[in-house]
Simulated assay, not measured.
Amino acid sequence: MSRVPAPGVLGRAGLVVGSLGLGCAPLGNLYEPVPEQDAGDTVRAALAGGTRLFDTAPRYGNGVSEQRLGQVLAEVPRSEVVVSTKVGYRLTDGGSEPDFSYDGTMRSLERSLERLGLDRVDIAHVHDPDHHEREALTGAFRALVDLREQGVVSAVGAGMNQSGMLERIVAQVDVDCVLLAGRYTLLDQEALTGLLPACEARGVGVVLGGVYNSGLLADPRPGARYDYRTAEPHRVAAALAIAEVCDRHGVPLKAAALRFAWGHPAVSALVVGARTAEEVRENLAMAQTAVPADLWADLRAAGLLPREVPTP
């Protein structure tokens, strides 16, 4: 039987982040509005449950997520939390525009600090540079490395929904960590053969987001989201088949999804989003749920999990 992993230490940056962090995209009204009180209660519930890592970004609600997070974190000692935000997009009245330049990165982080009410952040990620790789390498990352030397950020990273570019970034940039969303889950192990071994070899910390794949691994059904869109039928079928194996073992699918993501030795921590205090408490309970080794064996036997994938 397994237990919740020990508190994670994020790569060579040495930041103690805990095993389960709070993803703050929902606090920026992702998919549906979140009342101000609910947003605050969500962050307070995470703090009460021992959460240390809080991940946000300017694009989450056009600055709303950062503002809401900062208001609550002002209530606790700064040393008790690890704050992660992102750069790469300039906020506009209508949303945001990509800006991975050196100067744009400096301005972006300055404004994030204002919204958060902080004088430094622990982790600054370059956010989704999918179509701007060259500019990010010559501009945004260079700026963040300079800010790290100045003590404004403690760790430099990159946050993306794909592993291929992250692998190239790890090879070319002096990053401390990466945030990978949705590409190492029970449904998708894209990062297994490239990114995760590269990070492990270089001592780069890995934080996984999207371990429920936008909801399909939380509530598998037709119409559920996968990668921020309505899931295709074959994805729904795979999630339902995994859920059936979990049911036979008396294990909630959410608990198995969390436990699986912790199973790779390169992974330091997970961040899971929540929009209410109740969702936070449920995620914390799922993190404490034991998962028997036979469940992983049955998933492999059913062809639902590749045999080479490490499990807890």
Rank of each mutant, 00 (worst) to 15 (best):
A243L: 01
F260S: 02
V34H: 02
V16T: 14
D294W: 00
P33W: 03
D38C: 09
E66F: 10
L217F: 05
A124R: 07
T289D: 11
N283L: 08
V211E: 03
D93P: 15
V17K: 15
Q172G: 10
R225I: 05
G50L: 10
S108G: 15
S84A: 15
L137A: 11
E279M: 14
G223N: 00
H264E: 03
C246M: 06
T311E: 05
H131L: 09
G139K: 06
S96H: 12
G104C: 06
P222L: 06
G88C: 08
P129S: 02
A287Q: 09
A181Y: 15
L10D: 14
P58S: 01
H131W: 00
V211T: 11
V43E: 00
A140L: 04
A255M: 05
V81Q: 09
S101F: 00
H264Q: 12
V272Q: 14
G61V: 05
P265T: 02
E110P: 01
T51P: 15
W296T: 07
A239R: 01
V178I: 11
Q67Y: 01
A256R: 06
A198Y: 10
A45I: 06
A198N: 11
L258K: 12
T51N: 07
L295I: 07
V206C: 11
V236N: 13
P222D: 04
P26V: 11
V175Y: 11
R221M: 03
V81W: 09
D122W: 00
T289S: 11
G182Q: 10
G263D: 02
